[in-house]
Design a protein around this nucleic acid. Structure first.
Lengths: 342, 342
DNA sequence: ATTAGCAGTCAAAGAACGCGAGTGCTAATG
DNA sequence: CATTAGCACTCGCGTTCTTTGACTGCTAAT
C-alpha cells in the first residue's frame, strides 16, 4: 500500500470537500481525480485515514470529510502557497494610491484582504514599542475637561480625556503641552514610567496640579499603546459563504466583536517556516470558533528590528487554504514593504 | 363602530406580534388584552384595518401581522416613548467614567446602545464645522513620505500621508509644521480654501515645494472632515435575534458595511416632534434593508448652535419601538450633555 | 495489494394526512 | 348600525411512512 497515495487521497478529499461542501465518497474520488485504481482500493485507504483520525464520516452512509487534523496535515505537508493572480496584484497596487493616512491605510488593507479572500479579514494595529514621542498637545474641551494628545514618530496619534479639579484657561493648558513636548521629545514610547516629579517641577506652582493629571494621562496613553486593537472587515462574508456555518454565525460574530479573544489567538499563533500561522478549528481553543480557521501572517513596520503585528483572515474550517494563505502572505509582505518604504 | 377601538386593535396586534413573532389571530387578541368584545367583532375590525393596508395575513388561515404602514401609524400615534429603567440609567452613568478619549467615547456609546437595545447601533462622527484648527504637525515616515496631522479644537485628530518628490530631513518638516501651526492657529476648520500662496511664501525657498504639498494635504484633511464616518457595534445581535430575518442577514451586513447607504439614510431622515427619526421597512428605500427599521436621533456637540450628528439603531422591522426609541433618545441626550459638558 | 461483487445502513427527500388555528360570511339580536 | 354566535371552508404545519440512492465494509477471487 503506497503511503504517498494515501496522502493523495487526503488531498483530494480536502480539495473536493472545500469545493463542493459535500462529503466525498470513494467513487466520485476516482472519477474526478484520475486515480488509476478502483473505488474499493480508495475505500481501504480511506479506512486507514479514518483510523489515523484524519477524516471522518458524518454518518454511516455518507462520504468522508476531513477532520481538523486532516486539514492540519493538508496545510502542513500538502498544499502549496499559490502565487497571486494578475488581478490581485493589481488591486494591491491600487491600494497605495488610496492611502491617505495611517489609519485608513490599515482600513484599506483589511478591506482588500477581505475582498480577495471572500472572508473576514482582521489586522492588528502595529505595536509602537520602537516609536518615539513626537509631540504632546493639550486641548481644552470645557472648563474642567481637557484632551491630551500624543503624537508618535510612527505616525500614530493617541488621545485621552482628562478631568481637572480646578478650572483652568486654555493658555495654561497650551503651556503644559509645550512643556511636555519639550521634555519628552524623542523619548521612546515604551520607556515608562515617566519622570513625573521632574515634569511636574518644570512648571510654575499654580500649574502643577493639572500638570500632574496630564502627565499621568500621557503615561496612561503610552501604557495603553501596548495593548493592540483590531480592525476588521468583511463580516458580511461570514453570512454570504453559502449559508454555510448555518446558525453558528451569531456566536462567531460575537467572538469577533470580542477583540480580546482574537488578539490572544493571534499572539499565540506560531509562524511556520513559510511565515504563516494557521489555526484550524478547535486549535483556536475557543468554542465559538470551533468551526472556523484563522490564517495569519506577521507584517513589520520598521525594518528587521521592529516588532511586527499580525494580519489575517477568519473563515470556515472548510476554506481554500491554498489561496487564502497566499493572499494573506502577499498582503503581509506588501504592507511591510509600504510601511518600511522602499 | 368605535374608531378608537380599531387603533387599540392595531396596537395590540403590533405588540403581540413583536412579542411572540407569530401572526396574531382574533381569539388570542381578546384573551390577552381584556377587550370586552367578542372575537367576531375583532375580526370585523381587522378586516377594516386590512383594507386600509395597516395589517395583512401572510396566508389564508393565519393571523395578521402589521404592514410597514401599520408600524408607521403605531409609531406616530400610538406608542409612547417609555422612560429608561434604573439599570439603564446606571449603565449610562458608568459610560462617562470609561471615556478616555474622543474616539473611544463614541465607541463606548455605540456599544452601550447596542447592548441596551439588543440591536445594531450606529453613530455618526460629529461634524467639525465649528471646530478651530489647533495644531498642525508633520512627521517624517521615510525619506520621502511624511504624515501630516491636524488637531482640531473639538479634540478630533486627523492625519494624512503625503509623498514628497525630494528627500527632506526631519528638521525641515518640523519647521513646516510649526509654520503651519502659527499661521492657521484658531482658523475655522470649515474656512477653506486655505491661503496657499501665503503659506508657501512664508518659508524659505528650499522648503516651498514640500510646503505646497503639505498645505494641500491640510486642506484635503479639512475638506474630508465634512464627510462623516460611522462607528458600529452589535452586529452580532443581528444574527442573535432569534434566527429571525433568516438568511437575509447577509445582505443586511453588506449594506451596513457600505457606510454610504446608512449615511445617506441618516441624513435624509426627518426628526419628528419628539426629536426622533424612524424609518420603517421599505421606507429606508434600500432593498436589503426592506425588513429592517432604523431609529435615530440627533445629538449636538457644542451648545444649541453646533450642527449635530446622529446616532441610532438598526433592527428588524418587528422591533420593540417603544423601548428602542426611548433608548436612542436618551442616549442622544446623554451624549449631547457630556459633549457640551455640564 | 488490488479488485469485483454484494449486502447492509441511513440521511435526505417526498407523499399522504390529519390537526387546528383562523378566516369570512350569514343571520339573528339589541 | 354595531355586535355577536354559528358554521363551513381554507391552508400551513408537523407527523408519519415510504422510497431512494449514495455510501460503506466485508468477503472471496485475482
Amino acid at each position: 500500500m503506497s503511503d504517498t497515495r494515501r496522502l493523495h487521497v487526503l488531498r483530494a478529499i480536502v480539495e473536493d470537500y472545500v469545493h463542493t461542501r459535500e462529503p466525498v465518497g470513494s467513487k466520485a474520488l476516482v472519477e474526478r481525480h484520475h486515480l488509476e485504481v478502483s473505488p474499493a482500493t480508495i475505500r481501504n485507504d480511506m479506512a486507514h485515514l479514518e483510523e489515523e483520525g484524519l477524516i471522518m464520516a458524518p454518518h454511516t452512509s455518507a462520504g468522508r470529510i476531513p477532520t481538523d487534523q486532516g486539514y492540519r496535515l493538508f496545510v502542513d505537508r500538502i498544499t502549496e502557497v499559490r502565487p497571486l493572480s494578475k488581478a490581485e496584484r493589481k488591486a494591491m497596487d491600487a491600494l497605495v494610491e488610496a492611502a491617505d493616512d495611517y489609519e485608513s491605510m490599515l482600513e484599506q488593507t483589511v478591506r482588500l484582504l477581505a475582498m480577495l479572500t471572500n472572508q473576514v479579514a482582521v489586522i492588528q494595529h502595529p505595536q509602537q514599542s520602537t516609536a518615539k514621542i513626537r509631540h504632546v498637545d493639550v486641548v481644552q474641551m470645557s472648563p474642567h475637561k481637557a484632551l491630551t494628545i500624543v503624537i508618535l514618530s510612527s505616525g500614530r496619534v493617541e488621545q485621552r480625556m482628562v478631568t481637572l479639579s480646578d478650572d483652568i484657561d486654555e493658555d495654561s493648558l497650551h503651556r503644559i503641552g509645550q512643556r511636555l513636548s519639550e521634555q519628552l521629545y524623542h523619548r521612546s514610547a515604551s520607556a515608562t514610567p515617566l519622570p513625573l516629579d521632574e515634569l511636574i517641577g518644570s512648571v510654575e506652582p499654580a500649574l502643577q496640579p493639572p500638570m500632574a493629571v496630564i502627565a499621568n494621562a500621557v503615561e496612561a496613553i503610552l501604557e495603553a499603546g501596548r495593548v493592540d486593537r483590531i480592525i476588521m472587515a468583511g463580516t458580511a462574508n461570514l453570512a454570504k459563504s453559502g449559508g454555510d456555518l448555518g446558525p453558528a454565525i451569531g456566536p462567531i460574530l460575537e467572538a469577533l466583536e470580542e477583540q480580546v479573544v482574537l488578539l490572544r489567538l493571534l499572539h499565540e499563533m506560531q509562524q511556520d517556516q513559510r511565515g504563516l500561522s494557521v489555526a484550524i478549528g478547535r486549535e483556536t481553543s475557543h468554542d465559538s470558533l470551533a468551526e472556523t480557521s484563522v490564517v495569519a501572517a506577521e507584517y513589520v513596520t520598521t525594518g528587521p528590528g521592529g516588532e511586527g503585528a499580525k494580519l489575517g483572515v477568519v473563515g470556515p474550517t472548510r476554506m481554500d487554504y491554498g489561496s487564502t494563505m497566499s493572499a494573506v502572505r502577499a498582503m503581509a509582505r506588501y504592507l511591510s514593504r509600504i510601511l518600511s518604504e522602499g
